[in-house]
Simulated scan of single mutants.
Amino acid sequence: MTAASKPFREKVLPSTNSSWRFWRYEGTSIPFNWHYHPEYEITLTLNSHGHRYVGDCIEQYEELDLVFVGPNLPHTWCSHHSLDGQTQPVYVAQIPASWLESMTDTMPEFEGVRHLLALSKRGVKFSYGKAKEVLNIFDSMHTADPMKRFIGLMEVLKCMLEEENPVTLSSSSFSFTLKNDIANDKIEKVIQYIHDHYTENLTADQLADVAHMSTNHFHRFIKQRTEQTFTELVNQLRVGKACSLLINSDLPISTISDLSGFNNTSNFNRRFLQFKKCTPSQFRKAFSGKMSRKAAYAV
């Protein structure tokens, strides 16, 4: 990182049926991706080592690096390539600031979290022991439904609160001034276009025209700004629409596939499994079962 390096604003899209984002990234390295966003972020790296950049703090990190980053604090990890080809997983939880801060303001149970949020504005590193505890929670959250993931997030916050000696990273004198980001307007326009036209056969060329850039530049832009490929971004939004239809209608799955913008049911099933870790029919059955139990309790 040089003095001329300018962080870019990342667009965070919540996970399906969630008000926050939880995901697991896997690759043979973690690329330098100097960025910021208005959400709080909990990051846990596995099976990698390299350099961690948070504000004006640059440090080497090793296996199981657990860090809590506050809103609009520039950060990135940059790892060495795996010589043996093994993946380097990263768990990331990104929570809207207004949502998390409102709980500290209105719920006495969250009083202790207030201090943790204040520390996160400089970035907080936790011990190896706490990182192992959080790894177990994140592993269970990876295939969990939204409610269980929310409970897991509360467990992670509690775990971090119990850290005896949290280490702040960026100096107290570091400041980052938010500036108007023209590129942020472009990503907003692209996502809105996908929401408005998700049933159509969307192409990168088409969206590149919307963003007024070349197709090659558009692919790099989307990957950098959302940490997803263009195809993954479109499919995530389509799967979200499908979840709503599966929950709120009795339509056949083949019909829901068409209404969600997928070209065939087989492709729909593959993409749904990719994002939800279950098939559309399993998702509908599981949700129907929960609703039946709630009705029974209400009687």
Rank of each mutant, 00 (worst) to 15 (best):
L237Y: 00
L117V: 01
L237G: 09
K290H: 08
E232P: 00
V134D: 07
N248A: 10
V113D: 08
S266C: 01
F221W: 11
D145T: 02
V134M: 03
A183S: 14
N17Y: 00
A204E: 12
D205W: 00
K158Q: 14
Y53V: 05
V239T: 12
N264Y: 08
D139T: 02
P108Y: 13
H212S: 13
A208P: 01
F32S: 07
W23H: 07
S266I: 01
R21N: 10
H51L: 15
L246F: 07
V69L: 10
F272I: 01
P31A: 10
K132V: 02
L169T: 03
T143K: 04
S102K: 00
G152Y: 09
E26C: 15
A183W: 10
G261V: 14
D205A: 11
H51Q: 13
D185P: 03
P89F: 14
L161R: 07
R293M: 08
V167N: 02
L178M: 02
A242K: 03
L116T: 04
Y91P: 11
P31T: 03
E162I: 00
L169A: 11
V69S: 06
A97S: 15
F138Q: 00
N47E: 15
N180W: 07
P280G: 00
E109K: 04
N263C: 12
L44E: 01
V167T: 05
N47Y: 14
F8S: 04
T16R: 01
Y198E: 10
F272P: 03
T231I: 11
F8P: 00
I58D: 13
S5D: 15
G152D: 10
K125D: 06
P252S: 13
E109W: 03
S244N: 13
E111T: 06
E111N: 13
N180V: 05
L233W: 07
P166H: 03
E41K: 12
I30W: 08
F126D: 03
A296M: 05
I182P: 09
G112T: 02
S140D: 12
K285A: 12
T87P: 01
Q236F: 05
I191S: 04
M1H: 08
S98I: 06
G27S: 14
T199N: 13
M147A: 12
V67M: 14
F272A: 01
V190D: 05
A286T: 05
Y53W: 06
N17R: 14
A295M: 12
M1R: 07
S5Q: 12
P146R: 05
H195Q: 07
I137Q: 04
H217V: 08
L202E: 12
L119D: 09
T226G: 12
L119I: 03
R271I: 12
Y193G: 02
K277A: 11
